[in-house]
């Protein structure tokens, strides 16, 4: 019914029209007005924040369990003045991005090979399936044993946490480059290397960038685990230590900051995607 032109309902009452417009907002896979979409997004954040404010200022919950928004803000200022906040942010970003970039460097070639040459897929796919179910924190004792307690084991943990999933996803992305395009390139005289470079690589790049965006999220989720390893600074470390001193405001602050960083990086990745691949702006994953 949503597809019917509006002029056939010119005799309808205003109420019926409102009802229909409301129904259209819930139609399957149909566009909704941008204003509605934006207000839903912002509305959710605001109502959650409102709930938090109510519960904390109204002292529904004891402050030691739920700090107030101003309490969290004050803590942020204090930590900033003590030069802890920036330092924690910096070191955690360095760890996350080092581990993530190591994973990128390994996963893209492995995924490309697994996705396009059967001999590599025979080696890589079952092996990744084997690694995939292993619990990443279980590697901590080995990492400490092999790599000591400096930066390396923390970075390696984030690497281990992301590389497997990333390889599998990159493999899937390159496999999705249509066989028709490969055939077209062959007929135009392209050899194997040229097909790999000019068709498969070019065709899967947008999907690879999107895969990286998703995996950066996974990398951040491993940060707290990574900073279990003999850390004395960093966002994950600060969260763990604050539990011992019942500093819930610090925990809230750092969890929210990680979420904020996530939104920012996600936004930057999407922007880059739209700028770099104007030809491919459909079917982006969430």
């Amino acid at each position: 019914m949503a597809a019917m032109p509006d002029n056939t309902h010119s005799t309808d009452s205003g109420r019926q029209r409102t009802q229909r417009r409301r129904a259209r907002l819930f139609a399957l896979r149909s566009p909704i007005p941008h204003s509605v979409s934006l207000s839903v997004t912002i509305g959710l954040f605001l109502s959650l924040f409102g709930l938090w404010a109510l519960a904390s200022y109204g002292e529904w919950v004891r402050p030691v369990f739920l700090p107030t928004p101003t309490g969290v803000l004050q803590r942020a200022v204090t930590l900033y003045q003590q030069e802890i906040l920036v330092r924690d942010l910096w070191i955690s970003n360095v760890r996350v991005f080092s581990g993530f970039l190591m994973a990128v460097v390994v996963a893209i070639p492995l995924g490309m090979l697994a996705g396009n040459m059967r001999i590599f897929s025979a080696a890589i796919d079952p092996f990744m399936g084997f690694l995939r179910y292993m619990p990443v924190p279980a590697f901590i004792p080995l990492l400490v044993l092999y790599a000591g307690i400096d930066e390396l084991p923390k970075i390696l943990l984030i690497f281990i946490g992301t590389v497997v999933q990333m390889t599998i996803m990159v493999g899937d992305v390159t496999r999705q480059v249509q066989a028709d395009l490969i055939r077209a390139a062959m007929v135009l005289g392209a050899n194997g290397r040229e097909i790999f470079r000019k068709v498969i690589w070019k065709g899967s790049l947008p999907g690879i960038v999107d895969t990286l965006r998703i995996n950066l999220g996974f990398a951040w989720t491993y940060l707290v685990v990574a900073e279990l390893v003999a850390a004395d600074e960093g966002m994950g470390f600060r969260i763990l230590r604050s539990q011992r001193f019942m500093q819930t405001d610090t925990i809230f602050l750092y969890i929210l900051l990680i979420g904020l960083l996530g939104i920012i990086f996600d936004f930057l990745f999407r922007r880059f995607h739209r700028w770099a691949f104007p030809w491919s702006q459909e079917g982006l994953r969430k």
Partner: peptide, 16 residues
Amino acid sequence: GADRGMVFQKDCLFPW
């Protein structure tokens, strides 16, 4: 080879 060209049912143009 370059002495033959082919046109497919789907256009098969490179989207990028």
